[in-house]
Nucleic acid binder design. Structure first.
Length: 496
RNA sequence: GACCCAUUAGCUCAGUCGGUAGAGCACUUGACUUUUAAUCAAGGGGUCCGGCGUUCGAAUCGCCGAUGGGUCACCA
């Protein structure tokens, strides 16, 4: 139909693209349009043929995959075919395949998808191969693949055209296979413990559950702006109020903030809530779950992250924020309770804080600047100041602090959890406090959420909650340097 | 958002002091029936990221911009 248009385009293409389009046109003319084929029946994956060679030697098999190398030597040829599980060599001979089919094969390109039927054997050089008796072209590749030897290195192309990355860089594929296994192992762990997986809205009229700037979108029929969720928290607690006592959700959240090797604007979190449990129970669950996943997926709890050995075997160190600051800076926040004294202490060790920073804010700032980077092995830091924890329950022992912990591994925050604040009057006051900060220009301060406070008034049992950044967990367990290496299609600015 | 670095053939990369653009792989043609980054012979292929400027002359020097990466800031 669009012949004239195709011709114009063809003229502008470079030689490689032109040649492949001409080959496709030739195939179509001779009634062998590969794009008309709808299915193929492979009997084996490459991996199985290699693993079970002893049983399969001499047997006829069929495989399907992409041609990734090709060596034509007159009347015989070798090629490697890449399928989902690996690659295997095929041996193609003119007298086995017939002259016509052999000539067609010689025209196939690296990148084409073929189905190959043939007998399993080992070459003189000892490589397990399939001797082709029949080859079907299942799809024509119109673009050249990146080079086989050096692969695809350009990170821009790797992220924008991840399909190419997956084809030519096998290690990347492994990361995404592990990612899938990690998430399914997590689901299994929680399901076995009686948790129910639920789904809550992504479009929120109030973006709550975290301190972050949201993305804003618009619903046409309702004619209202909506926020993309920044956390799962508030709806999940409403599910707990509704009477489910163990729930979790694994899902995408969106934060309109900076990007880095640790941050992508959309990322995946798991949050779970367990009624009648406190943050100590959640610590136990967290270390047991991550340990179990590591053993399940990697077969070991001692892992290597960027050259550093990390031991995930429980129990993990548990340290209050006050004790952590004392250990790494010598400052004992228990010995004073004046805001001014705290600010003075910060100044003495070169940590800058706001003029009116409170005792708790100073404690948190010193922790972030002086302690976090030291927490390489798994460490729970607990008892966070109330100012930075608007949804956590106040400690009975010290009302400046909350029953909250964060998990640090390789100096990175991996999880955040607390005994959930279930006092609706306190919650409303804290939201009002946050609203005040918001009015003063703090775009990350929490919004007032009347629906949530109203639900709390109905009565929420004492509950422990946990959030884990799945991408960061995957980074840790796959030894990935950047979050972009564990997200198939990281957010990129469009080209041009 | 600030600073630093990168961008040359489809891919991976050279390119000296500013003097008409190079290699390997990939591609095309030919030879070759057990290759292993197959080999041999011949050939084609460029918006040197874009624009402006300096210069007799710019891939190379300067300025502006684009995209990416890194560091910092903010956050998980």
């Amino acid at each position: 139909m669009n012949n004239s248009k195709d011709d114009i385009q063809t003229n502008e293409l470079n030689e490689i693209l032109k040649v492949r389009r001409e080959k496709l046109a030739k195939l179509r003319e001779s009634g062998k349009d590969p794009f008309k084929i709808t299915r193929y029946d492979p009997t084996h994956y490459s991996e199985e043929i290699i693993e079970y060679f002893d049983e399969l030697e001499g047997e006829e098999v069929s495989i399907a995959g992409r041609i990734i190398t090709k060596r034509v030597m007159g009347k015989a040829s070798f090629a490697h075919v890449l399928d989902a599980k690996g690659q295997i060599q095929i041996f193609v001979q003119i007298n086995k395949l017939g002259k016509e089919a052999y000539e067609e094969f010689k025209d196939y390109d690296i990148g084409d998808i073929i189905g190959v039927k043939g007998e399993v054997f080992k070459t003189n050089r000892g490589e397990i191969s399939v001797r082709a008796s029949e080859i079907v072209l299942l799809s024509k590749s119109l673009q050249p693949l990146p080079e086989k030897w050096h692969g695809l290195k350009d990170v821009d192309t790797r992220y924008r055209q991840r399909h190419l990355d997956l084809i030519v860089n096998p290690d990347i594929k492994r990361t995404f296979i592990l990612r899938s296994k990690i998430i399914s192992s997590m689901r299994k762990y929680l399901d076995d413990k009686g948790f129910i997986e639920v789904e809550t809205p992504i479009l929120h009229s109030v973006a709550g559950g975290a301190e972050a700037r949201p993305f804003i979108t618009h619903h046409n029929t309702l004619d209202i702006d909506l926020y993309m969720r920044i956390a799962l928290e508030l709806h999940l607690k409403r599910v707990i109020i509704g009477g489910f006592d163990k729930v979790y959700e694994i899902g995408r959240v969106f934060r309109n903030e900076g990007m880095s090797i640790k941050h992508n604007p959309e990322f995946t979190m798991i949050e779970l809530y367990q009624a009648y449990a406190d943050y100590n129970d959640i610590m136990n669950l967290t270390e047991d779950m991550i340990y179990t996943i590591a053993k399940d997926v990697l077969g070991t709890a001692v892992i290597n992250y960027q050259g550093e050995e990390i031991d995930l075997t429980p129990p993990w160190r548990r340290l209050s924020m006050i004790d952590a600051v004392k250990e790494y800076t010598g400052i004992d926040f228990r010995s004073f309770d004046e805001d001014s004294t705290a600010r003075e202490a910060a100044k003495n060790i070169g940590v800058e804080v706001e003029e009116n920073a409170t005792w708790g804010l100073v404690l948190n700032t010193i922790f972030e600047e002086k302690v976090e980077e030291k927490l390489v092995q798994p460490t729970f830091i607990k008892d966070y100041p109330i100012e930075v924890s608007p949804l956590a329950k106040r400690m009975v022992e010290d009302d400046r602090l909350t029953y909250r912990f964060e998990l640090f591994i390789t100096s990175r925050e991996l999880a955040n959890a607390y005994s959930e604040l279930n006092d609706p009057i306190d919650q409303r006051e804290r939201f009002l406090e946050q609203a005040k900060k918001r009015a003063q220009g703090d775009e990350e301060a929490h919004m007032m959420d009347d629906d949530f406070v109203n639900a709390l008034e109905v009565g929420m049992p004492p509950t422990g909650g946990l959030g884990i950044g799945i991408d960061r967990l995957v980074m840790l367990l796959t030894d990935s340097y950047s979050i972009r290496d564990v997200i198939l299609f990281p957010t990129m600015r469009p080209k041009e």
